[in-house]
Amino acid sequence: MKKLTRRATLGALALAAGVALAGVQSANAQDFPTNTITLVVPFAAGGSTDLVARVIAQKMSDDLGQQIVVENVGGAGGNLGADRVARADPDGYTILMGTVATHALNPLMLKTKPYDPITDFSPVSLLVVVPNVLVVNPQLPVNSVAELIDLLKKSPDQYSYASSGNGTPLHLSGELFKSLAGVEMQHVPYKGAGPALNDVVANQVPIMFDNLPSSSSHIKAGTLKALGVTTKERAPSFPDVPAIGETVSGYETYTWNALFAPKGTPPEVVARLNAAAKKAMADPAVVSRMADFSATIVGSTPEELGEHVKAEMAKWEPIVKDAGVSLD
């Protein structure tokens, strides 16, 4: 009888401890945040994802009452940064600025997958959809997509193009262009769009598929020449730049930016981050900044982002197979 009583007592104590712990966790979630939040950008500084992250981090910090620090973890086409967040404590203090690369393309291309884009993350909000753009150094003797195709066909294997890394949307943009236009270019991957862009401006690499936000200032300044945007329609901020699809039938790519937390992050924390993100995206200064480079604001719910990731993987899978891109 004593042993049974002791077991019952221990069980009751364990139950009480569990209830108390749950109460503490719930209280902590309701008080969130009480410390600095790290927003991991899985690419080098200076690219489109970095630009969007820094704009959003500032506005979200104002609403949350705690600073959001942007940390660039470049490499492996975004996989290093994404994997870091997937393995982080699920408390909302380490979050990811994910993209179509980290949550659709890389998982489809990689033979060895460091994380699952659906099961290893808690979706927070789809922020923006961003056009890509084909840019060249002004010294390259072409002024249109058609002229570039002619040049590449006359001099196969002589030219190269830069991207933000293997498996990124910019890499796939180039490979899809090669496939549909019937041309050859050597791919030069970087750890992010920023370093790649610097080398294209310096004419170390003459061609690049970039996110429109990070190239827009160079296009306006004349240090880069825009030949075409990668979306089906022309970008409102650059109406004179044609869509590549106007010359290369069926061509379309784009990227997007979204916030993700590690799997198991409390729903209350996800909801708080989502509310702050949506408030930031509605801010007039943010709306104006996004419009400068034709980024379409979304500001979704966590559930909508989860469905978006599934839809993106279904959409890009046949494109990745047709482009023949596979990464170790």
Rank of each mutant, 00 (worst) to 15 (best):
L148K: 00
V70K: 01
D50Q: 01
T223I: 02
D89S: 14
G65A: 01
L176E: 11
V133K: 10
D240I: 02
T265S: 11
I244G: 00
V287P: 01
G75P: 03
L273D: 08
L51R: 08
A196S: 11
I149M: 06
L180T: 02
L39K: 01
S61I: 02
A57W: 06
V136I: 07
A243Y: 03
M185F: 02
S216H: 13
D89H: 10
K279G: 05
L227G: 12
V133L: 13
L51T: 12
A16I: 10
T265A: 12
T119G: 12
Y251M: 02
P131R: 09
V145E: 00
M185P: 08
A282F: 01
N143M: 03
T230I: 01
P114Q: 07
M185R: 06
V69D: 05
N106I: 06
S214Q: 12
T223W: 05
T102F: 06
K232C: 02
A8T: 06
A101T: 11
G74C: 08
Q67T: 15
V19P: 05
F209T: 01
P318Y: 07
D240H: 13
A16T: 15
G81N: 07
D157E: 12
L197A: 05
L140M: 10
D157S: 12
G23M: 06
P239G: 09
A82H: 03
H103C: 06
V69Y: 03
F293K: 11
L197H: 01
I219W: 08
D120C: 05
G11N: 09
P189R: 05
A17E: 02
S160A: 13
D83K: 15
A226K: 03
A243W: 02
R84N: 09
K315G: 03
A82W: 09
S26D: 14
R6D: 05
Q66S: 09
S215E: 10
A181H: 03
Y115W: 06
E268A: 15
R84Q: 14
G167M: 08
P284I: 06
D199I: 01
P302G: 04
A282E: 05
S215M: 10
S164F: 08
N137R: 04
V269E: 09
N28S: 14
K3R: 14
S288K: 15
L227S: 13
V130N: 08
K263H: 13
L212D: 11
G299C: 08
M109K: 07
N132A: 13
I95K: 14
F260N: 04
L10M: 14
G98M: 07
G75R: 05
V145F: 07
G222L: 06
L227H: 13
G65W: 01
W256I: 00
V241Y: 12
